[in-house]
Design a protein around this nucleic acid. Structure first.
Length: 243
DNA sequence: TACAATGATTGGAC
DNA sequence: GTCCAATCATTGTA
């Protein structure tokens, strides 16, 4: 069952008894976190534990109420048996109805606990709230690739994976970065011109070093022509995409 | 503290 | 699926 799996995954329906209720959990989940990672993590765990505790407390209450109500109904039936015959099957049927009713209430409790956990998780995992700037080195690597492929700044899947590895970020972060970079560059080429020249010069220096090394080794490879930067309007397709 | 920069998300187009 | 464009939310800085 998915609900059980989720609660189990978060340790909510496990054997360990802690503290926390659905409503309180939702309130806990709704309150903001702290800036520090470790503090945030302990905050998350504390709120999760709160959810767990309330879940178990409520569950116990329901079980107790169920037992009390069952005993009460059975006593009533016994009393009634003095005035009319009541078969054991009838008693069994009544007990079954009570248990089904209570288990559906417990299911609702599970559902709301599950929702509270999901709210908590989404808040904790919401990347926007935890955005961190990439390292200077990573930005450098990405910029180097972007400006040296200005005529076609669309890295292949392999190139993205390579860049992701080099920058210690994910492939989707690389995709996001290139998406943002393309659009922002296109919107304000003038602003990025200096940066483009800088990286073009860097690429040129790297190429020159490579050529020098090749010459030294008596190799005959020809140098690659670095991209000069620019990004003329002709680079864009009619639909606005960069060619 | 206001503002710019930046990484992530969303919705629509292809 | 990718990409663009707009936007959001956070971070960095003057």
């Amino acid at each position: 069952m998915r609900l059980d799996n989720m609660l189990l995954a978060e340790g909510v329906s496990g054997p360990e008894k802690g503290g926390g209720a659905a409503a309180a959990a939702a309130a806990a989940a709704a309150s903001g976190g702290s800036s520090d990672n470790s503090i945030e993590h302990s905050d998350y765990r504390a709120k999760l534990s709160q959810i767990r505790q309330i879940y178990h407390t409520e569950l116990e209450k329901y079980e107790q109420a169920c037992n009390e109500f069952t005993t009460h109904v059975m006593n009533l039936l016994r009393e009634q048996s003095r005035t009319r015959p009541i078969s054991p099957k009838e008693i069994e049927r009544m007990v079954g109805i009570i248990h089904r009713k209570f288990s559906s209430i417990q299911m609702q409790l599970k559902q709301s606990t599950c929702e509270a956990v999901m709210i908590l998780r989404s808040r904790f995992l919401d990347a926007r709230r935890k955005r961190r700037n990439f390292s200077k080195q990573a930005t450098e690597i990405l910029n180097e690739y972007f400006y040296s492929h200005l005529s076609n700044p669309y890295p292949s899947e392999e190139a993205k994976e390579e860049l992701a590895k080099k920058c210690s970020i994910t492939v989707s972060q690389v995709s996001n970065w290139f998406g943002n970079k393309r659009i922002r560059y296109k919107k304000n080429i003038g602003k990025f011109q200096e940066e483009a020249n800088l990286y073009a010069a860097k690429t040129a220096v790297n190429a020159a070093h490579a050529v020098a090394a090749a010459v030294q080794n008596n190799q005959t490879s020809s140098p690659t022509t670095p991209n000069s930067g620019g990004y003329p309007s002709s680079c864009y397709q009619s639909d606005g995409r960069i060619q």
